[in-house]
Simulated scan of single mutants.
Amino acid sequence: MENGLNTRVLLVDDEEDFLAVLAQRLEARNLTVSKATCGEDAVDIVEKKDFDVIILDMSMPGIDGLETLKRIKLGHPDAEIIMLTGHGTIQAGIEAMKLGAEDFIEKPVDIQELMEKIKDAKQKRILVLQKQSKEEIEKILKSKSW
């Protein structure tokens, strides 16, 4: 993923300045970035568009990061989600992982660390999609009476 080719990322954070700067930093590394400033918008966007990785803030007004994580995972159980927080607690991180988050990172974000986590999450997503494709092909082959 050195050049970020075909990596689609959704950033979700209510701090608009932070969101803009992080999006710009990821786009400079050739990632395709979409943004949402609240959990409700993130859930709607995920219903309409496919992402390799979702970077989701824990603390937001309206539905918080954990509730947003639950809602996204409900419709997209294979979504790769990295939780992001400025006030991280071990308990919140454990809860996020139990709900299906791929990883957890604290603000201020170290861009190299985030890029590594994005790379790992995308590789995991590719493996999941390959497995699903293989299973689908096997299912089709079994259903045909050649």
Rank of each mutant, 00 (worst) to 15 (best):
E2T: 14
E2V: 13
N6D: 15
N6S: 15
V9K: 08
L10W: 07
D14C: 05
D14E: 07
E15G: 02
D17T: 15
F18S: 10
A20D: 14
V21S: 06
V21Y: 06
Q24K: 09
E27V: 10
A28P: 00
R29Y: 05
L31S: 01
S34C: 05
S34A: 09
C38E: 11
A42S: 07
D44Y: 03
E47T: 08
E47K: 10
E47W: 03
K48W: 03
V53Y: 10
I54K: 06
L56D: 14
D57W: 11
M58T: 01
M58S: 01
S59H: 08
M60D: 07
I63E: 07
G65A: 14
T68I: 09
L69H: 00
K70Y: 05
R71T: 02
L74W: 08
I81C: 01
L84V: 13
L84Q: 14
L84F: 08
G86P: 03
G88D: 05
T89L: 12
Q91I: 07
Q91L: 05
A92P: 01
A92M: 06
G93N: 03
A96Q: 00
A96I: 03
K98Y: 11
A101G: 15
F104Q: 06
F104V: 14
E106K: 13
K107C: 06
V109L: 14
D110H: 09
I111N: 05
M115A: 11
E116L: 13
I118E: 02
A121E: 01
A121I: 03
K122P: 03
K124S: 11
K124F: 03
R125A: 12
R125I: 05
R125N: 10
R125M: 12
I126M: 10
K131G: 05
K131E: 12
E135G: 03
I140S: 08
L141C: 04
S145M: 13
S145R: 14
W146S: 09
